[in-house]
Design a protein around this nucleic acid. Sequence first.
DNA 1: CTGTTAGCGCCTTCAG
DNA 2: CTGAAGGCGCTAACAG
Lengths: 342, 342
Amino acid sequence: MTDKKKLTLKDIAKALNLSVSTVSRALKAHPDIANETIELVKKYAEDNHYVPNLMAVNFRKSRTYNLGLIVPEIVHHFFSTVISGAICEANGQGYNILVTQSNDILNVEEKASQIMLNGSVDGLLISISNETTTGEHLQAFLDEGKPVVQFDKITDYISCPKVIVDDFEGAYQATKHLIDQGYTRIAHIRGRTDVKNACDRYEGYLKALKDAGMPIREDLVKCCTMITEDEGYNFTSELMQNDNPPDAIFCITDLVAFGSLKYLKENGYVVPNQIGLMGFSNWMISQTTTPTMSTVNQYGYEMGRAATKLLLQLIKDQDLDRADTTILKTELIIRESSMKQK
Amino acid sequence: MTDKKKLTLKDIAKALNLSVSTVSRALKAHPDIANETIELVKKYAEDNHYVPNLMAVNFRKSRTYNLGLIVPEIVHHFFSTVISGAICEANGQGYNILVTQSNDILNVEEKASQIMLNGSVDGLLISISNETTTGEHLQAFLDEGKPVVQFDKITDYISCPKVIVDDFEGAYQATKHLIDQGYTRIAHIRGRTDVKNACDRYEGYLKALKDAGMPIREDLVKCCTMITEDEGYNFTSELMQNDNPPDAIFCITDLVAFGSLKYLKENGYVVPNQIGLMGFSNWMISQTTTPTMSTVNQYGYEMGRAATKLLLQLIKDQDLDRADTTILKTELIIRESSMKQK
DNA sequence: CTGTTAGCGCCTTCAG
DNA sequence: CTGAAGGCGCTAACAG
């Protein structure tokens, strides 16, 4: 049982008949202080379990050693890997991470960042909500000299470093893979037109078709708003009712692909031989479906680490003024759902 | 663009020719202060975007308005739902959550809690690592008057409120369900013998067998150490090589059940007609397997909220001295893997 | 009703 | 080499 009241510099000073400032400096082994004194103070502090009062130190330095982290949703495989990476990097550099979620609601995101800005954190890591466009609440951070790093879902209205995956290239590779497998009528169930990732993936899809000299058919593109299993299911139903239905579907994310798979299996389509399927994001579920789902891995953990590393750089070197975009490679993961037997 | 330097009480006082304390009180609408003054100060503060310096306030009150949250693993469906619930409850009451993970390593958990104890948080929510037994690092919190609430994975060495799910009852129901379906040789792939949840589930399994007058066969119980898909796969292989193999397997968690399913399918066993299967925890993957996996839902979100609510009670009412255990009900989720056709 | 004073715990000039 | 003094921004007695 330690004492109820924590030891302060003052207590040590009194006990050792020194001044507070000497004690303070001794503990930091300041060159001005005699070695004996340093030893003495350090020993006393050690023996009596002196722990500096972080709140006082932080207040003095106006630093919190906390980083804010806002994601749309915590219960989401990809984001949880990002959080994990961020925490790893932050803890390694002596920072804590303060996590919150916006549930893709702008209002919630604004409130959360407002609270964090009011002195809870030294900087912000954020993946914006679907509703966020301009982002004055992020600008407010910059205006107060607190750096911001955006990741995954970003807005270009704010001038700060960004870390994203190469959605375009990932989607291009995914689509190209389907083409290479011999599929010829490739549909795409995409995400919202006002969300950058979704657009990039769509562009990657288009480019792959073009490069292969395939026609672009608007009737083979469906647009999710909520990115749910149900949307995958229902859009697949619509697609298959087409006069000239697709023989492969590239979905914006694994969950949607799962919904798609469900519809196809329920209706007697054989995946991958009749219909090829690709997801995106490499959720854990993509390994547990039958057939297993081909997908694109996004390296969330690395993204979390990279974004945090950037933010800490900006915090430690206030003069640094970066606003570049780090683009992480994706990885095509080929599983059963796209392996047409030739 | 707001000003670079933030407005302080002093600034307002100077501008309005008042004293700092008057301004301070006016902003809180203290009854001593004249209404006109209150209006005046509030208006000025509003117009000039005065925001109190939280670090100073917190330092003064020695409160951080942060809660620590330590889980073994963030990238884990159950824990992410707990985190989500905790954040919801905390934010609702004006608190932030500082998340970290132990990776089931005691040493990491100790360091993380040490850092948090040093003034980053007002209290701690923790689900301990597999390696944690006594938990002096948790006692250290209590010794400093900072409340702790344990959840899910707990140790009884620490006297504090605990929130757990009824693992015993959940496992009992799961096993009973298998029995009710007509399975007669029910195996159990359990977790570590030094982890409470695992033991409780094992006990629930035993009790259900006993209540049904079924024999307890030690050769039908396997013990995981890492709780992985591979363990599920390998132990199922061992079980099926038994002279008198099981006709149903109840697994400690969905991931293990998935490994088990994989082995069974690869080796031509038909689930659920030949072999019944039950998981635990209701991970998302339990919905995506073929057949879909019966499981036990743990209401992680509610657990997170409940634990946080308790912690905030303890923080706000320091005299309160609770050390009771809240036991949340589980929910049996019956899917295809256990629905033997009779 | 308002102002003065003091202090939270620590750090940092500035003097000796 | 060490101490005294001042202040970070805010709150809370204690006086008027």
